[in-house]
Computed example of a mutant assay.
Amino acid sequence: MENTISYFSRTDYTIIQQSEALAAYGGKISDLREQLLEFFNESIDAKAVVVGNSMGGLLALELAALIPEKVEAIVASGAPGMGSMNLDIGPPKKSNKEESKEWFRDLKKQLFVDPSCVSEQQLESLSEFFSNRRSFLNMIPLAKESDRYDATTILPKIECPVLLLWGDQDKVSPINPWENVPELNSKIEIEMIKDSGHSPMIEKPKEYWKSIEGFLKSTRIQAM
């Protein structure tokens, strides 16, 4: 993620980055939604471009539907909401550091075309985070709830431009169920990033940023 932020910071855009994984903030989508709504209503004065991956992408779409006066555009990748996500390895069995590290080693093979894009230092950091019992316990119900979520209920309500920016080899949340989404809302467009899995912002940060930059220019969204 650091590489992506470095691309963003070379622009005139003001960047607000979430500091921790979503599981640190709650174990229900409704909890996360309310916290984000509170943050936007209290802290964001102008319309924002909201960028999110996986569950973050789904929450970005929800924000656009719920507070259109605060959202200029959305970029979502690998979002749930069109059927079950497929991790293919199940949740980690224990909330301790070594178990978490081993689980993430298996997980990154599912998330990335090239697992080497995640360093041992990043793996250590992730393992440390999910060895926290509260975050560990939050992750499991969030995953189950996202599998039941029906994104088609919110997509027609979105009024701003939306870019669905997907890795072309996303095994966890494949693009296929989303391909007809532009029929629900003409403001939604789809773009694929070649040779990327579930998290293109980590695996292909340069291509990811260029796609976002092109999207913002095409929709005439100015830096704030």
Rank of each mutant, 00 (worst) to 15 (best):
S43H: 08
D45L: 05
D45F: 03
D45E: 08
A46H: 09
K47L: 01
K47R: 07
K47S: 01
V49A: 02
V50F: 02
G52L: 02
N53K: 05
S54R: 02
S54E: 06
S54C: 09
G56L: 06
G57R: 00
G57D: 01
G57V: 02
L58M: 14
L59C: 07
L59H: 06
A60G: 09
L63Y: 00
A64H: 04
L66V: 07
I67W: 06
I67V: 15
P68Y: 03
V71K: 00
E72Q: 15
E72L: 10
E72H: 06
I74H: 03
A76G: 15
S77R: 10
S77W: 14
G78S: 11
A79T: 11
P80W: 07
G81H: 00
G81V: 02
M82C: 14
M82P: 08
M82Q: 15
G83L: 05
S84D: 09
M85R: 11
N86P: 08
N86K: 14
L87M: 14
L87P: 15
L87E: 12
D88N: 13
I89P: 07
G90Q: 10
G90F: 03
P91R: 03
P91D: 04
P91E: 07
P92Y: 09
K93W: 06
K94H: 14
N96E: 15
N96Y: 10
E98W: 11
E99W: 07
S100K: 05
S100W: 03
E102L: 14
F104S: 06
F104R: 08
R105L: 13
D106G: 15
D106P: 13
L107V: 04
K109H: 10
Q110M: 11
Q110F: 05
F112D: 05
F112K: 08
V113F: 12
V113H: 10
D114M: 07
S116I: 05
C117S: 04
V118N: 05
S119H: 02
E120N: 08
Q121K: 13
Q121G: 08
Q121I: 07
Q122C: 06
Q122M: 11
S125E: 13
L126R: 10
S127H: 03
S127C: 02
E128N: 07
F129Y: 05
F129K: 08
S131M: 12
S131G: 10
N132V: 05
R133D: 15
R133G: 12
S135H: 12
S135N: 13
F136R: 01
L137E: 12
N138I: 04
I140F: 08
P141Q: 05
L142V: 00
A143C: 07
A143P: 04
K144N: 15
K144D: 14
K144L: 15
E145I: 03
S146E: 13
D147P: 05
D147G: 07
D147C: 07
D150Y: 04
A151P: 04
A151V: 14
